[in-house]
Design a protein around this nucleic acid. Structure first.
Lengths: 175, 175
DNA sequence: CCAAGTGTTCAGAAGTTACTGAAATAATTG
DNA sequence: CAATTATTTCAGTAACTTCTGAACACTTGG
């Protein structure tokens, strides 16, 4: 049992570190890891205890996870307090994260690039030539990415696997 | 000309913000943006001036960019000081970034997951059942990702585009 | 309608990361 | 080889982010 706890803890700590590298705060990532490997929904108190953090911090981390769409409140019958759980299917979880990151990061970037290119196109042709090209290339890259994303978004996890399988097979033939 | 500067600045600031969200420090991302849209290599002095940051900060940001493999020193003939430039091809740039992030983030995660699953498999079968399943799923996900990455890594930018094209077409037939 | 349990918010404290500027080091040149 | 210029390093500080804990709000059971 101590063994199991140790493995859980290692995973939780690691996931927390990864979160930091990804611009997600450590506690939030840890709470996510904890919910992800817990067979049952947990109460705020249990999370508090497991992660050794304050009540307020738990409340904020859960709020954020819910805002991201990867955790949710669960009512347990006959229980007064709220319980929390997280998306358990890995593919769905990453799809949700991808959607959110696209919205927060990619879409605004595309807007900036599009506006910039439009502005640059209005300018005397000699000026800002190089800048125009580079920003256009970046824009094309992001737009291609968004197209691929949109196609994948519509698939269920199994279809995605099949598609990936196809890509890999094609590659093997071609090279 | 003021117009052009304004567009450059907007892009640089935005790229800096994106960097922060991605766990890359703002200055580093700004320096990268600046080099990316500059037709010619820039000296540390010029970067300092453009971004209004200290000499030391420029030095550190460049060191990091070089460590990531997306910027490099350039010797300009007859010039004493060093000049710096960045990978100008967008696809190559993202390939380099992907390789680096895989090394820093994905590989260590896979190691943790693999070890954890191995440990859990040694335990009495009833214990840690759920944890085992969840970590195994996560591991499978990352391993699939790495496989896809490895296939794509070997391609030149054009092949990647073709592959993506194929994927999108297949999708249209299947749905 | 009070006491106990739960959840939220937020000001300030603690912790972390980024930046400056000065000193050290290195490279170049007359 | 001394003077000049360029670059790196790093201690200390500034800026920013996260976390705590106390105040408040709400619910429920007695």
């Amino acid at each position: 049992m101590a063994e199991l706890d140790q493995i859980r803890e290692r995973f939780i700590l690691h996931w927390g570190e990864m979160g930091s590298l990804w611009g997600i705060n450590r506690t939030m990532a840890q709470a996510h890891a904890l919910l992800f490997i817990s067979p049952k929904p947990l109460s705020a108190n249990e999370i508090m205890e497991e992660l050794q953090i304050s009540r307020g911090n738990v409340s904020m981390a859960l709020r954020e996870l819910i805002a991201w769409g990867i955790a949710s409140r669960v009512h347990v019958k006959g229980e007064r307090r709220e319980y929390y759980t997280t998306e358990k299917d890995v593919w769905t979880m990453f799809r949700v994260i991808a959607r959110e990151r696209k919205k927060r990061e990619v879409d605004p970037t595309i807007n900036v690039l599009r506006d910039s290119v439009t502005e640059l196109n209005k300018m005397p042709s000699a000026e800002g030539q190089y800048e125009r090209e580079q920003l256009q290339n970046l824009l094309d890259f992001f737009e291609t990415g968004v197209n691929v994303y949109k196609q994948l978004e519509a698939q269920n996890p199994n279809s995605i696997l099949k598609l990936l399988g196809t890509v890999l097979r094609i590659k093997n033939i071609a090279f």
